[in-house]
Write a protein that binds this DNA or RNA. Sequence first.
DNA 1: GCCGTTTTCGGCCCGACTGTTTTCAGTCG
Length: 572
Amino acid sequence: MENPDIARIFSDVADLLEIQGAVVFRIRAYRNAARIVETLPAPAESILRDKGEAGLTELPGIGKDLAAKIREIAETGKLRLLEDLKRQLPEGLVQMMHLPGVGPKRAKLLFDTLEIDTLDELERSARDGRLQGVKGFGPTLQANILKGIADEKVRSTRHRLAEAEAYVKPFVEYLRAGTPLQQVEVAGSFRRRQETIGDIDILVSAARAQPVADRFVSYPEVKTVLAHGDTRCSVVLRSGLQVDLRVVPAASYGAALYYFTGSKAHNIATRTLAVKKKLKVNEYGVFRGAKAIAGRTEADVMQAIGLPWIPPELRENRGEIEAARQQRLPALVELKDIRGDLQMHTTATDGRATLAEMVEACRRKGYEYLAVTDHSKAVRVAGGLDKAAFRKQFREIEKLQKTVTDLTILKSAEVDILEDGRLDLDDDVLGEMDVVVVSVHSKFALPREQMTARIVRALQHPRVHILGHPTGRLLLRRDPYAVDMEAVVKAARDHGVLLEINAQPDRLDLSDVHAQMAREAGVKLVVSTDAHRVEELDAMRFGVDQARRGWCAKADVANTLPLDRFRRLLRA
DNA sequence: GCCGTTTTCGGCCCGACTGTTTTCAGTCG
């Protein structure tokens, strides 16, 4: 069982307990546990293997009981508690409680009064008027339920960060253009630079809230208005993206920004800290009794709680609060630290721009070096190059290099890792390259052991420098292939291989959690765009965001090094 | 279910909006 499977089970338990009407804190403990397990830097199974249940109870939020339950799941593949709950409560109730306007209480009420336990049955009851008789189910709620069921069938749930950015920028411009705003910022998971976004939170400070709220719900792209209050509104855009607005006075802007940036888990943890200091924290400020002691800026708010300012990317309650209290937050890598891009393609294979065009674009970015990494021959669909074709390209590079003095073009390739872990090019041509990137592009469905052995074997090859997009995932489209990342990280460490954070907005591979895991193992990373067009070189910032979420400082990212030191690292 | 330089029991973050109510429960973030 992988961590997400265990998390899923805890999350299902929480849903069913909620319907059952269990004590809210017990429910919270399961939800909390789901989140903890989901974001663990190592598989729970290997923690159990190495340190037993004690290794799990070290984690704040996991006690004796939950540690034993994790063991039960690891050993049997399921959890008796969940099986029991499922026998008592039909699973359809969980789907019902996730409809807008329906929560655990109403789902249970529908089951108890009308024996409704599926979405289909609920839809029929709403249509034929049976819901009328149930307490609390007025005409509006019924209409909302029907709409929710219809939306459920065509729902676009999450959006990639880059995609959300494309929708939110014009929306913010529209708000700015029409009403006098003092400050405006997109908060939430967007500001934390999470790889995918459920909804967008726009925070505004303005002298008068009402005009901002009115303009917000009138945005032409708005499909549905979910809520329209004085200071808080919520809409769904035609794209399916939900956008929430919050308007606060300037004196509360920092507190509101802090609160609406989240994450929820981070907020709960810092508020708990505040309670111990006899303080109350809400979106309007930090209060001692009735007296506001902070609120205007985020830094003020955190200082009042006794914390230094924590970068949004770290606010996941994954140890950042403890690190902040001990003044050992990492100085996170920044876009301006990047001195070179180490994966890109040209018209020689599946890129759209020529070698000269890509080099010129990198020169304009002010890079010190770049690696041209066209595909090797196994990637037929991309027109992968053979030994002779690479040598031809290297001669072109040498020729071009003579005309370009202010940046170095590194000869390279994205060499395919074949099914058995051998490489798609011979050692002699690999030896003519400055840097060798290896990646998996085929046979994604291999069993976990086989895939792990395949990648580890490739990393053992003495000429390999970088593992490209290590898990092969495509966000929201394709799961990572089954692979033991702990073993891959260990192999990378043992053989001095760098792990790539691929900055393509639909890859962002490594994930934040894996990047952090690599960093903690002492493995160096690189952030590369894998650009197939000149414009895609701009994706570097998404990769840097991901590195920051993985706690990476400048020193953890090898392509922040000046060329001579980078070369020395490759040789080592 | 977790946790503890207040506690092994008794706490556990906080507020806005909606719909259906006549003062608030449920939902949501």
